[in-house]
Design a protein around this nucleic acid. Structure first.
Lengths: 222, 222
DNA sequence: ATTTTTATGGTACGTTCGTATTACGAAGAA
DNA sequence: TTCTTCGTAATACGAACGTACCATAAAAAT
């Protein structure tokens, strides 16, 4: 037989073509022929490696989330070894904002899949619903950790704040996507809440004199 | 000629059929034939009143936002005459959560249109982007109003809080839609933030003793 | 060397979609 | 009345889509 090719590799190649063309024209507008052309293969090949369009879409979603997880991981290790809870959370949130081509594509397609899953049972059964739950748990743990270290307001409800941060990030990401908001504006809002949460409570009184209001960091809504 | 029918009325009837079928099967899945069947008219009629599918979709979006605005208005007058800023904001936010069939459909379709507008220029040009801006302005004004009346934290940044509340509501609405979160959970988070914002500041000292170190409302993380 | 797999190409089939065409009865206008 | 115009219907058309089918060269397996 010919070359004895690596199926998984080929599938990845095709899935990336799917992601590219879907990011450009919208998930609803991609056909198997588009994917084939983008990947530089014949339509038959796409059928060969994914028997059906549905399977292709599922695989594409999986690939998308995998890439995104890797990206967040890279951002995390980029902030230096053993970053504090706040830096970690900030890295996660900022990585989720559509600020460059890859994150823009991710945000667009993940949103598309989510909306699609509302009316598509097969997609809803796909295990990409637990990703948000995992993020929520992670942030909750980080906030609790900061509270125990005296770095965050001990009176804050960690889970509520985690939900809030993720929720704000998601919507503002969409706003950026549709051109309604600038990334800087979204970042300012997130910083505002991080500042609010990561303020040592009175019980753990840190060091500085409890005097005059320290200069407000940033925000400024244009 | 026959009956001399009201075109606007017919268009509304058809648009409502569109909204119903799109809410059931997803916006991407509706065809002109589906809309015609749902409205109980022939395909030709849908073509007659809307020449093209694009125009039908635009009209449907317009109708959707109009209905939603009316619904929010109804909720507002339902909370009694001259409600306070907080009650007003709460009514707006809670009306936006997909808790019944109508709000569920609205949330699903509005999200679908938004995502579509990212890759569809004609849809992006449609004036439904300013709706969120209007809501943001309204909430900002209400918070400022509450601050001046001594009902809200005077140190809070009204616009930032308005953006945050709307952003959280939107994402949590989607979470409810996909079955990831219960409405009660979303409402609890919103209440938490409303409680935080609508807390009379110390400057307007309501009643309690002016004791312990005033909470540094902010920033500069250590 | 022959036979069986495997990867790939080309193309045809059946369906569905948006749109266009044609037709016709009924109501105002002349 | 006659003519025009409006609302409604049925159906046809061309394109695009997902999928199925047939073919073939090349590497293993026998």
């Amino acid at each position: 037989m010919p070359k004895r090719v690596d199926h998984e590799e080929r599938r990845t190649q095709i899935a990336e073509a799917l992601v590219r063309v879907a990011g450009r024209r919208g998930l609803h507008a991609v056909g198997m022929r588009d994917v084939a052309a983008e990947a530089g293969v014949s339509l038959r090949l796409v059928q060969y490696y994914f028997q059906t369009k549905e399977k292709l879409l599922f695989y594409g979603l999986q690939h998308l989330t995998d890439r995104f997880s890797a990206r967040v991981g890279a951002r995390l290790s980029a902030v230096g070894p053993d970053p504090g809870p706040r830096a970690t959370i900030e890295a996660i949130l900022l990585a989720s904002l559509p600020t460059d081509e890859e994150s823009r594509t991710f945000h667009l397609l993940y949103s598309s899949y989510s909306i699609l899953s509302v009316t598509d049972d097969a997609l809803a059964a796909q295990p990409f619903i637990d990703k948000p739950d995992a993020a929520e748990d992670a942030l909750t743990g980080l906030i609790r950790q900061a509270q125990e270290a005296g770095l965050a307001d001990p009176d804050a409800d960690a889970r509520t704040e985690a939900i809030s941060l993720l929720a704000m990030t998601a919507t503002m990401g969409t706003s950026i996507l549709v051109g309604q908001r600038q990334p800087e504006s979204a970042i300012a809002v997130l910083h505002h809440h991080l500042d609010r949460i990561f303020t040592p409570g009175r019980r753990h009184a840190p060091k500085g004199p409890p005097t005059a209001a320290p200069a407000a960091k940033a925000r400024v809504y244009p």
